[in-house]
Structures are given as C-alpha cells and as structure tokens.
Measured scan of single mutants.
Amino acid sequence: HRQALGERLYPRVQAMQPAFASKITGMLLELSPAQLLLLLASEDSLRARVDEAMELII
C-alpha cells in the first residue's frame, strides 16, 4: 500500500524538487496513509510538506 502511494507521490514531488525527489518522497512516506492520501488530493498541502522537507534537508 505504501509502495503504491510512493509511486503516485514521487512524480509530483519530482516536479517540485527534482534533485531531492527520492529523499523527500521517502520522508513523506513516514506519514500515515491517511495523511498521504490528503497530500495526493491537495497540491497545496503537498507543496507545503515538500517545502518543510527541503528546510530539513538544507
């Protein structure tokens, strides 16, 4: 289940942060499945989480 969510998330994360897409997707997969579904449904929520992840990385 998580694998399938990751496969759906990755291209969207890659479009926002290509250099760190794998790392960010891995970080996002730590969230609950319900939270992941919310990110897939909301571009704004996904962008906010990706921005948060980038702050942790750099």
Rank of each mutant, 00 (worst) to 15 (best):
I58E: 09
P18V: 03
A21Y: 01
A41E: 12
L29D: 01
L37F: 07
A15M: 09
D44W: 02
R12P: 04
R47M: 06
M27S: 02
I57K: 00
A53W: 05
I24D: 00
A15L: 10
I58V: 11
R2I: 15
E43H: 07
L28Y: 01
A19C: 07
G6L: 15
I24H: 00
E30T: 08
L28P: 00
T25C: 07
D44M: 06
H1I: 15
M16P: 02
Q35H: 09
A15F: 05
P11A: 13
L38N: 12
A21W: 02
A19S: 10
S32T: 13
Q3N: 12
R2M: 15
L40C: 03
M27W: 06
D44P: 06
L31E: 06
R12K: 15
G6A: 15
E30I: 05
Q35L: 09
M27E: 02
A19V: 13
Q3T: 09
R8E: 15
V13R: 01
L5V: 09
L38P: 10
S42E: 09
E43I: 05
Y10T: 03
Y10V: 03
Q14R: 14
R47V: 06
L29P: 00
G6W: 15
S42G: 05
I58H: 11
A48L: 12
D44A: 11
D44K: 09
A4H: 06
H1E: 15
L28T: 00
A53C: 10
L31P: 00
K23V: 15
A19E: 15
Q35I: 14
E55P: 01
G26H: 13
R12E: 06
L36G: 02
L29W: 02
P33F: 11
Q35T: 10
A53I: 15
R12D: 03
K23W: 08
F20L: 11
M27A: 04
H1V: 15
E30Y: 06
E30P: 02
G26Q: 15
L56C: 08
A4L: 09
E7M: 04
G6Q: 13
L29H: 01
Q35G: 06
A4T: 12
V13D: 01
Q14K: 10
P33V: 14
A19I: 13
E30R: 07
Q3Y: 02
S45P: 02
M16S: 03
T25Q: 04
P33C: 14
G26I: 11
L56G: 06
P33W: 12
R49E: 06
A53D: 01
M27Y: 05
Q3V: 11
F20I: 03
A15W: 03
V13W: 02
A15N: 08
A53L: 15
F20K: 03
V13I: 14
S22Y: 14
P18N: 04
D44S: 11
A53Q: 06
P18H: 04
L5T: 05
R47T: 05
I24L: 05
P18L: 02
Y10F: 13
R47I: 06
L29C: 04
S22I: 13
V13A: 02
E7C: 09
M54Y: 11
T25P: 00
P11S: 11
D44L: 04
L37N: 13
D51W: 08
A15P: 04
E52W: 12
L56E: 11
T25Y: 09
R2S: 12
L37A: 09
A41K: 10
Q35W: 05
Q14A: 15
A34C: 06
E30V: 06
L31R: 03
S42H: 11
R49W: 14
Q3G: 09
Y10I: 04
V13N: 01
G6V: 15
Q17P: 01
E43Q: 09
A21V: 05
L31I: 08
L9W: 02
L29E: 03
A19G: 12
A41I: 09
Q14W: 06
Q14E: 15
S22L: 10
A21P: 03
F20P: 03
L28W: 02
R49S: 11
P18S: 04
L31D: 07
M16Y: 13
L5K: 02
A15Q: 13
Q3W: 03
A48N: 09
G26F: 10
